[in-house]
Design a binder for these strands. Structure first.
Length: 783
DNA sequence: CAGTGAGCGAGCTTCCGCTTGACTT
């Protein structure tokens, strides 16, 4: 029999705390929430003050049964869940579900898992804060009402199985609106002028202090400064400093792991979970930048040992994000002296290294810099060239860590500037006027979306990764990479008194692992914004959070708040449901050659193009007048498709002619453009155009492919199904019934008999499938 | 590597936030 049962949320935490508390305590975990609203049905009695029905979650039945048994035996039950809204609610649900007397329980809280903090918490128990629990109930019930009332509207108006919610719908909206900004962005090019100079026998760059909107003006300037004399007009040196970033929260860890290690948000959390369970880092779902005193002391000792005392500068950071609950410390190593950690895979080691460096850097001195600005004038015009340089005087925290940035392009300030003074002459070597195209705001990555959501106070550390999965699972958003397209740009070069114009090429529009909205995502967003603008408002969460805070202070009843929210909200749901029409996101693209309307819309099977309309009213549409349909290709979007591209879809598949008495047709399929003949498919390479390819060329393509087949074939063994022995990229193999079989070493492919083949088939099919260590790459090959 | 309206009917889908394994491809 145990005297004390202490319950926390996380099993790993339970293990640590048990060590601190000794034999009088048994420490167990609830593994998160134990009770919730039922999954089926709304579970809220709206008519009676939103009375909720809570039930023990199916996967927690075992946990609750065990805790119940232990609680019965214990003298005191210590509810040591997190000190935030959700943690308080878990404590309350435990109290209700375990059936223990309130007098037998004590509520304890702490902000860090250190022995002193835990012991201090035990000395200062309190009772459950019911106002905070009510704030959680308001949050939970509001989310349920929004999610379970909005989603069915979408099932009726757009498509079954869709979903909407306070968090996910805003996340999708952000991506939809960013995509529209990117597509609507009009990049007006300009010319910037860069000069190359020499002073004290070293070369350096300086940029003209103005830009030109067109080539003529840029050329005019270069013409004017031909043969000019250049002198230093001004020299400015000023000290600057750079401060380290705060230690990691969940959101900033996800962002840096994305930039520095190319981890997805989900991957970061998985790897961090592994580190946490092994005891290498503190809890990884946190919104706090706070460090325990023990951690600060540990970091300081490590810094002084490794770099010397002048590199240490301890500090406590303030959490900036609104709505932070700060139940945990920042994410940090548990032991600062552990530079490398044993028994971990490389991803764990890399993430640990990132966390360790970031935390240590946060307790280090500022970097001290000297910024130099040299202004170079000339005797032909009033325009100046500006050279900027930066010299690190004292590296400070930069010695271990510098944060990456995904919004601005890397600027190169590393060039050393020559020692000059005002009035000095500098030698002009050349000047380049280069055409530049401004970029629109970038599309979101998983991590930059998390950053944006956090800034809006939407979502919590435990939900960032799942939210990103949800919006992709529902088909609202896809993560994609795209190859860019070449774009020409002009460069005018003034050198040796001559101006030369050249056209160069740069790659533009390339994207790597970015979030794109789908047509469904856009249509659903437009529908929700039109009908439920309040919920889709970027400030909705912030507003309700303010009310939750007032409830938590005991100054507002949670039922009153919900009434105020629900009555108008429910009215909008009823109104939107009453409208009979389905939402298809129909968009008129124009008219075809016969004057029929051409639409892009969402149909039963996804986005499509429709040509023609149904007859109005009673009149029956004649069969030959019925609209024609075509599905959009995978790379096409309703929002961006042109009339011409839409009409082209109806030209496919296109009859080309006859070959061996059978018809040939050209089309575009899942794997790109093809020619079909005698129910076989032949891919067309980039040199041919599916829209114009003719009979003669198509026959060539077919013959080519046949020739290659013959060259590949070593032997055909008649059998049912047929066995074909072929030459492959990885050596000879044979194929039967659409499956490929490797030919074992030591066998001559050409000599294989039917019996030998069947033997190989038998052993291969019986053998368990090898588990691939690597997932197959999506891109087969690129050239 | 197609098809493709709306309406009728049944029965299904869905939220956010807190935590881990137990599952299969």
């Amino acid at each position: 029999m145990v005297k004390n049962l202490l319950i926390v949320e996380s099993p790993a935490k339970a293990k640590t705390i048990e060590k601190y508390l000794g034999k009088d305590f048994i420490v167990k975990s609830s593994i998160g929430h134990i009770r919730d609203l039922p999954e089926k049905g709304i579970g809220i009695d709206v008519e009676h003050d939103f009375a909720p029905t809570y039930e023990v979650s199916t996967d927690k039945k075992k946990v609750v049964a065990e805790l119940k048994k232990l609680a019965k035996e214990a003298e005191t039950v210590w509810l040591a869940t997190d000190e935030d809204r959700e943690g308080e609610a878990i404590a309350w649900h435990l109290l209700e579900a375990l059936g223990v007397k309130e007098s037998k329980t004590k509520r304890v809280v702490y902000h860090e898992i250190t022995k002193s903090a835990i012991l201090a918490a035990i000395e200062n128990p309190r009772s459950i804060d019911k106002a905070l629990v009510d704030a959680q109930q308001a949050r939970r019930i509001l989310d349920r009402l929004v999610g379970y009332e909005l989603s069915p509207v979408l099932w009726r108006k757009v498509k079954p199985s869709l979903s909407a919610g306070r968090v996910q719908s805003v996340a999708v909206r952000l991506i939809v609106e960013r995509e529209r900004e990117v597509n609507g962005f009009n990049s007006v090019p300009f010319f910037k002028v860069d000069g190359l100079f020499n002073a004290n026998s070293s070369n350096f760059h300086a940029e003209l202090d103005k830009r030109y909107t067109n080539e003529e003006d840029a050329l005019g300037f270069l013409t004017k400064i031909k043969g000019a004399e250049f002198t230093v007009r001004d020299l400015e040196k000023k000290p600057a400093k750079r401060s380290p970033s705060a230690p990691f929260t969940t959101s900033t860890l996800q962002q840096e792991a994305s930039r520095k290690l190319s981890f997805s948000v989900l991957q970061t959390m998985r790897v961090a979970q592994g580190l946490y369970e092994k005891g290498d880092i503190t809890y990884m779902r946190t919104d706090s930048v706070n460090l325990s005193q023990q951690a600060i002391d540990g970091a300081k000792a490590e810094i002084e040992k490794s770099f010397g005392p002048k590199y240490a500068e301890t500090r406590q950071y303030k959490t900036k994000s609104s709505g932070a609950q700060e139940a945990h410390e920042a994410i940090r190593p548990t032991d600062f002296s552990a530079k490398e950690i044993a028994g971990h895979d490389s991803n764990e080691a890399r993430l640990y290294d990132l966390i360790r460096k970031r935390t240590i850097a946060s307790q280090m001195a500022n970097a001290e810099l000297e910024k130099t600005v040299i202004t170079i004038g000339q005797n032909k015009t009033d325009d100046n060239f500006i050279a900027t340089g930066e010299v690190i005087i004292f590296d400070g925290f930069l010695r271990v860590y510098s944060e990456s940035d995904d919004d601005t392009e890397e600027q190169d300030n590393s060039e050393t500037l020559p020692m000059v003074k005002a009035g000095d002459k500098v030698n002009f070597l050349e000047a380049n006027a280069t055409q530049r195209f401004p970029n629109s705001l970038p599309r979101y990555t998983e991590a930059s979306l998390v950053k944006k959501l956090e800034a809006l106070g939407i979502g919590r550390p435990s939900t960032y990764a799942p939210t990103i999965s949800t919006v992709q699972k529902r088909g609202y958003v896809v993560k994609e990479s795209r190859e860019g397209t070449p774009r020409p740009y002009k460069v005018l070069t003034l050198k040796n008194g001559e101006i030369i114009a050249a056209t160069k090429s740069e790659n533009t529009g390339a994207e790597k692992s970015k979030l794109f909205p789908t047509d469904i995502g856009s249509v659903v967003t437009d529908f929700l914004v039109e009908n439920f603008s309040e919920i889709l408002d970027y400030n909705f969460t912030a507003q309700v959070e303010e009310e939750f805070d007032i409830i938590a202070e005991g100054k507002l009843s949670w039922t009153k708040m919900l009434h105020q929210f629900y009555n108008p909200f429910h009215a909008t749901v009823v109104k939107a449901t009453d409208v009979k029409k389905k939402t298809s996101g129909e968009k008129l693209l124009g008219q075809d050659a016969n004057g029929k309307n051409v639409y892009a819309k969402i149909g039963r099977y996804g986005p499509m193009i429709q040509i023609g309309d149904f007859a109005e009213g009673e009149e029956e549409t004649k069969a030959e007048d019925k609209p024609k349909y075509s599905k959009l290709r995978a790379d096409q979007r309703m929002e961006t498709i042109t009339l011409e591209e839409a009409l082209n879809l109806f030209k496919m598949p296109r009859k080309i002619g006859l070959f061996e008495d059978k018809e040939m047709a050209a089309g575009i399929g899942r794997f790109g453009p093809y020619i079909r003949h005698d129910s076989k498919f032949y891919s067309i390479s980039k040199e041919d155009d599916v829209y114009t390819i003719d009979e003669a060329r198509a026959i060539e393509v077919i013959k080519d492919k046949r020739q290659k087949e013959i060259e590949k074939t070593i032997k055909i063994i008649p059998h049912e199904p047929e066995i074909r022995i072929l030459k492959g990229r990885f050596g000879p193999y044979f194929t039967m019934d659409k499956k490929n079989y490797k030919i074992p070493k030591g066998k001559e492919a050409a000599d294989l008999t039917l019996e030998e083949c069947m033997e190989i088939v038998k052993t291969e099919d019986a053998a368990p499938k090898k588990k691939g260590r690597f997932t197959p790459r999506k891109k087969a090959d690129k050239k």
